[in-house]
């Protein structure tokens, strides 16, 4: 499916300049992408979004904090409707340091305006997208997505150790490689949505591929980084069946 690209830059000369770069590069490389909108006014972008359902998409948005924070508003709106839209900020050097932007919008990349090699930066981004979406494909790599506050997160399923219910009501905690996330979620829903995960306990949903050891006597499952969780007797059979099938786990 063609990747739609949206460009928003309020300086009309620059906008045409970027438009040309993008369209040329797509044409030269014959990428499966298309610049669907090149606007100077953020309102146009929002209007286009409301009229068209976009899933996978790439945005080049101008952020100029000198004026009103229009670029950020657009980015926020885009994020609200499409959590995993890829947003590239076109900015002057200062905004790079902004942690707020990184957290709020988590942009894919930055195009630094005052540098002379804007062309190469844009082309690199397009190359990257092509590589990720069309070449690497990886349809089997599933992600677990959730929100904390207004931020969106997407975690590779293969990096998850297990999830447990939190002492805070309605929240679950995700443990994984070098990471831990606490967010609103229901164990039952997560169990349904991600059949790769095994429900070994009312409070635990594990990724069996990450289990390092199982102790059936103490009814404990071990994970890397010294994490562990327990399971009730009734689940022992299911566990055994699962691991016997895999046949690669040591149990005592």
């Amino acid at each position: 499916m063609t990747l739609p690209i949206i460009l928003c830059e309020d300086d009309i000369a620059l906008m045409s300049h970027y438009k040309a770069i993008i369209e040329n590069w797509i044409m030269i490389n014959d990428y499966d992408m298309r610049l669907v909108l090149a606007a100077t006014d953020p309102a146009e972008v929002l209007l286009y979004l409301s009229q068209n359902q976009l899933t996978n998409s790439l945005y080049f948005l101008d952020i100029d904090l000198g004026k009103q924070l229009d670029g950020i508003d657009v980015a926020q709106q885009v994020r609200k409707d499409n959590e995993f839209a890829q947003i590239v900020f076109i900015t002057a050097h200062q905004e790079l340091a902004l942690e707020t932007l990184k957290r709020q919008i988590a942009p894919l990349d930055y195009i630094v305006k005052d540098d002379r090699n804007e062309k190469i930066q844009i082309e690199t981004v397009l190359d990257g997208r092509h590589q990720q979406v069309f070449v690497d494909h990886r349809p089997n790599d599933r992600h677990l997505s959730f929100m904390i506050g207004t931020r969106n997160f997407r975690v590779d399923l293969t990096a998850i150790y297990f999830l447990e219910t939190s002492v805070t009501p309605h929240k679950v905690i995700l443990y994984g490689e070098n990471m831990m996330y606490e967010f609103y979620g229901k164990m039952n829903n997560l169990e349904e949505e991600y059949p790769e995960l095994l429900r070994v306990h009312k409070s635990f949903l594990i990724n069996p591929n990450k289990v390092t050891a199982v102790d059936y006597k103490s009814r404990t499952i071990f994970f890397p980084e010294e994490y562990s969780c327990s399971f009730p007797l009734v689940k022992a059979k299911i566990l055994k069946k699962h691991f016997d099938r895999i046949g690669s786990i040591i149990h005592k």
Binding site: Q76, Q104, T150, Y175
Partner: peptide, 23 residues
Amino acid sequence: IATRETIEISIENSFQGKLPSLS
């Protein structure tokens, strides 16, 4: 951070070693 519906206060710190479980 101020969004349209919320105000977020984010406090971050580096840490050493293993993080104990949140519970």
